[in-house]
Design a protein around this nucleic acid. Structure first.
Lengths: 228, 228
DNA sequence: AACTGTATTAAACAGTTGTTTAATCACACT
DNA sequence: AGTGTGATTAAACAACTGTTTAATACAGTT
């Protein structure tokens, strides 16, 4: 029947225990490969508890994703910029924020892996994630780009610039294991920590933006030239 | 026992049929979620045939990945540059090559999805893939970067530039479904085709490179200034 | 026609999966 | 003590998993 129960009173300990044990397992193996029996074993609860508290396996998964997002936002909050903060600094801060929150160089918390799974192979849960999390996140980045350029770029152009910046960051999450196979082990330890990567992506992206500006200035000159 | 059989004579039709039906299914659902029964059903062979021809499910999977790489290289061959080709043009060609071969904007062949799975969650097969495919691919890109810059960058720096370029491209594979949820449907059709993306990534990356050069020139000036 | 080695098959096997059931437990309230 | 309600349990369920078996079909060779 799958009528979801609500532990109305007190500590909610079993429900929470399931949720917190399910998260890392789903993150590590994905929805399909994860078995409810493993979750229940790790959480020291009966196999029937999942259906009792969450209805079925899918709804449990959905709840772990929602929880992962909430925890991740809390663990790595957005920077609180002063009104005088330069947009260059904001961009560096934002790149650092992505790397910290979604790429998570050193330790790799289960919340990150779970959110990445939803990006790669979205389920119904992803729509919720986009509206609550990714869209406002991306809008912040777009604001920084606008400030850096100084005028309004066409929206598709500005969006692609945003994706270029995010893409550079996410590469080190998606292709992390393959990158490790590609380069010297020692280099990876020394040269691919958070600060090195943030610095490089910041530099590279500012250059990309400047190039756009210059070309646009040229185009403007051309237009005024032909107009005269 | 799982002794692998080799169909020595003639057309090999059942073995090939299994391989070509298994590919798309593995690509779509991953190793774990794919069942041998579905493959055999689609290929019109008996369930025992997989074990007869490939030993077990794992070895069949390995063979489909190897096949996917071979087919993908054949389907989208590397450009054949003349000696006089400018490095700027080479970079644009290379970005287009990545987008065509690994990102595959319009149609999304199963070979691409399968290779992406190996990047995201490498199995033993990935080592083979790195040595035979990705490393020479990346070396080509590094050569172009060297030509563009005009002198030898430190290797970690040059590698990161390479990853920035690849990262921008792969973003549109990894985050394709989420990006579609983020932006207007019509914009996605109009502004995110192969040519638009290649043009943007080319422009953005040339800018990033130029910025590196300028900063390096400055650093050189500083050094000579302090040296005098 | 008899033999040989490969190819193909239906059936069974042993294990795991998510889910359900019905019984029991714990504890508050009357 | 008795009652009722939610929490927890062991057991069973039915469906599905990859793999194996043993029998059969089909060539080509002697």
């Amino acid at each position: 029947m799958a009528t979801i129960q609500q532990n109305s009173n007190s500590g909610d300990s079993t429900r929470e225990r399931i949720l917190l044990e399910a998260g890392p397992i789903f993150a590590g193996k994905g929805f399909r490969a994860t078995t409810v029996r493993e979750i229940c074993e790790k959480a020291n609860v009966n196999v029937a508890s999942i259906n009792y508290y969450f209805g079925d396996k899918r709804q449990l998964y959905h709840q772990t994703v929602v929880l992962a997002r909430e925890m991740r936002v809390e663990q790595v909050p957005e920077p609180n910029w002063a009104a005088t903060t330069e947009p260059e600094q904001k961009l560096l801060d934002f790149i650092t924020l992505i790397l910290r929150r979604l790429v998570a160089m050193q330790n790799e918390p289960w919340q990150v892996r779970l959110l990445m799974r939803e990006i790669l192979e979205p389920t119904e849960t992803c729509k919720h994630l986009v509206e609550e999390y990714f869209r406002p996140f991306f809008n912040t980045l777009c604001g920084i780009i606008d400030d850096l350029v100084g005028y309004r770029l066409p929206e598709p152009t500005r969006n692609k610039i945003g994706f270029s910046i995010i893409g550079q960051c996410l590469y080190y999450r998606f292709s992390a294991e393959m990158t490790r196979l590609m380069i010297e082990q020692q280099d990876y330890v020394d040269q691919y920590d958070l600060d090195h990567l943030a610095h490089h992506i910041h530099l590279f992206s500012l250059g990309g933006l400047k190039h756009y500006q210059e070309l646009d200035d040229l185009a403007h000159q051309d237009t005024s030239a032909t107009e005269t």
